[in-house]
């Protein structure tokens, strides 16, 4: 037999949680951003798994795959903006440390 849907969902959930842990504990803002990308791709896996599970007659529901295609495209746009912001931040503070952005604090 093939693999149950639950295993795909657990895989995607674990990948998402690892990304969440990275966003919470890492200080380097580049790695935080990489972990955000990982969370997006984990969401993609569960969307594609749902599209396979809900299909009729063995044909997947392609609406879910179109949605995950949109997520990929938005992720690409988001990465270009975010990395430009990181470069601008590095120019301003000479650091990519997320704890160095404390001008408003002190």
């Amino acid at each position: 037999m093939t693999i149950p849907l639950a295993h795909y969902l657990i895989f995607s959930g674990i990948l998402f949680s690892i990304g969440l842990a990275g966003v919470l504990i890492r200080k380097n803002i580049l790695v935080v951003f990489m972990c955000l990308e990982m969370m997006l791709s984990a969401a993609n896996i569960s969307l594609v798994a749902f599209s396979r599970a809900q299909g009729t007659n063995g044909i997947p529901v392609y609406d879910a795959q179109v949605l995950s295609l949109f997520i990929v495209a938005i992720a690409a746009a988001e990465v270009s903006i975010g990395l430009a912001l990181i470069v601008a931040m590095f120019r301003a503070t000479r650091s990519v440390d997320s704890t160095s952005l404390n001008t408003l604090k002190d």
Partner: peptide, 22 residues
């Protein structure tokens, strides 16, 4: 210095989330 939060808190939040999803 590796962590911005204490490592324990970050891992705990992520683990609770993972357990919830599973």
């Amino acid at each position: 210095r590796f962590c911005k939060l204490p490592l324990f808190i970050g891992l705990m939040v992520a683990s609770v989330f993972a357990g919830m999803v599973v």
